[in-house]
Simulated assay, not measured.
Amino acid sequence: MNRRALIAGVAATAAMPSLAAADGLGGIRIPASTCDSELRGLSPTGGKSYWASGSKGWLVRGKDERQDAMRIVGAEALDFRGLHAFSDSHVLAMSAGPGDASQLWRTRDGGKKWVQVTTNQDPDGFWDSIAFVDSRRGFILGDPTQSRFTVLYTADGGDTWNRLKPEGVPPADDGESAFAASNGCVAIGRHGQVAFCTGGAGKARVYLSRGGGGVFVALDTPIPADSRSKGAFACAFAKDGTLWVCGGDYKNPTAEGVNLARLAPGRITFEAVPAPAGYLSGLDVHGDTVMATGLAGTIVSRKGAPFQRVSPAPMNTVRLTGKTSGVLCGPKGTIGLWKA
C-alpha cells in the first residue's frame, strides 16, 4: 500500500579544500557532510545539481557545495543504494536488501512528499541497481532467483514492473551475484544495449543484450572473482559503444590485480586496461573522459591517456556531468565535486 511521508532536512555550505590532484586532471573538493550515511546512489539533474542516497534512509539534494539532507519517515531503516532523478523535483529511490527490504519510493516535489511505489514480493529476491533508458523505460537488476538473475522492466516511468522472461538470461553460476555498491552494475547504451556485471563465482562476467534487454549473452572479463568479495562492480557504455567495466575486492581495497577492462564495439572479448591498483566500485564515461572510483580512491583518463589517480579519498560512486566535471559520493555522507 502506498504511504505518504514527510521529510526532515538540514543544509550545509562549508567546503573543504581540494584533495590531491594529478597534473592536468584537476582535483576533488569535498564539502562538509550533512548526514551519517554510506552514500551509493547518485544522479545529476543538470548544471551543478544532483541527488544522492544511501543507508539509514538518507537522501541528499545538492547543488555544488550546498547539500540538503532528508530522511523519508517510515523508511529510516532502508538502504537506498539506487537512485534515478528524472529532474530536480522528480526522483525514484531504490532500497536494496533481502525480500521486502528492496523497495521503490518516489517524490515529484523535490522531496517534500514521498510515496512508496512498490516492494519486492520475492522473499528470495535482492535488488541491486536501477537504470532508465528515458523517462518511461527502465530496468531493475536483482540477484538470481530460480537460478537466473532477476531483470525487471518498466514502460511507464516506474509505476509498474514486470520480470523479463527468465529464459532470456543465461543461468547464473553457483555463488554468482551482482554488487549493490554504487548503483553502477547496470549500464544503458545509446543504441538499445543493456548490460550488467557480476562476480563472486570464480569469474567476473558481463551480461550483454544488444537488443533492448530481451536476450542476454554472458561474457567473461579478466577481473578476478575467486571469492564472494571479488568481481565486476560497475559498467558503463561510451558514446562509441565501448563497454567499460571495473571491480576488484571490496574486502582488500588496495590489492593488486586487474581492476579495469573494456569491450570494443563489435567484439566479444574484454581486454584488461592498465590502471593504478585498487578496488573500484563506480564508473562513468563522458566523451573521451573515463573516471572510476572506489575505496582506494579515484582514477581518470582523458583523451585516451593512461589512467592516473586524481584523489586518494575513498568513494563509492561517480557520475560525470561533462568531460571535465563530475560528482562523487561515498562513506560517512561524503560528496565529492571533480573539476579538471
Score class of each variant (00 low, 15 high):
Leu328Trp: 01
Val73Gly: 08
Gly168Met: 11
Gly247His: 02
Asp124Thr: 09
Phe270Met: 08
Ala178Ser: 14
Leu25Cys: 12
Arg81Met: 11
Thr160Glu: 14
Ala93Leu: 12
Ala236Ile: 07
Lys323Trp: 11
Val310Thr: 13
Tyr250Gly: 04
Trp114Gly: 00
Leu25Asn: 07
Pro312Gln: 07
Ala236His: 04
Ser182Leu: 07
Gly278Asp: 01
Ala22Arg: 05
Ile30Met: 11
Trp51Tyr: 09
Asp220Thr: 15
Asn162Pro: 03
Phe233Met: 15
Thr154Lys: 03
Trp338Cys: 00
Val310Glu: 01
Leu295Val: 03
Gln146Cys: 10
Asp249Gly: 06
Phe126Glu: 00
Pro312Glu: 12
Met70Phe: 14
Ala32Ile: 13
Arg210Ala: 11
Pro123Thr: 13
Cys235Glu: 07
Leu164Gln: 07
Thr293Met: 08
Gly211Cys: 12
Gly26Lys: 07
Ser135Ile: 11
Ala272Asp: 05
Thr254Ile: 07
Arg228Asn: 09
Asp134Pro: 05
Gly142Leu: 03
Tyr50Gly: 00
Asp143Pro: 12
Ser102Gly: 10
Leu280Met: 14
Ile188Trp: 04
Asp64Cys: 02
Ala236Thr: 03
Asp122Lys: 06
Phe233Cys: 10
Asn2Asp: 13
Asp174Gln: 10
Ala234Tyr: 09
Val290Leu: 10
Asn183Phe: 08
Ser311Gly: 02
Gly326Ile: 02
Gly212Ile: 01
Gly282His: 01
Gly214Asp: 12
Ser177Met: 08
Cys246Val: 15
Asp159Asn: 14
Ala236Met: 08
Val245Gln: 06
Leu92Lys: 02
Asp36Trp: 13
Leu328Thr: 05
Tyr207Lys: 07
Ala340Gln: 06
Val91Ile: 13
Ala201Thr: 09
Gly214Ile: 11
Pro44Thr: 04
Gly214Lys: 14
Pro224Tyr: 00
Thr198Cys: 13
Val91Phe: 04
Gly297Met: 00
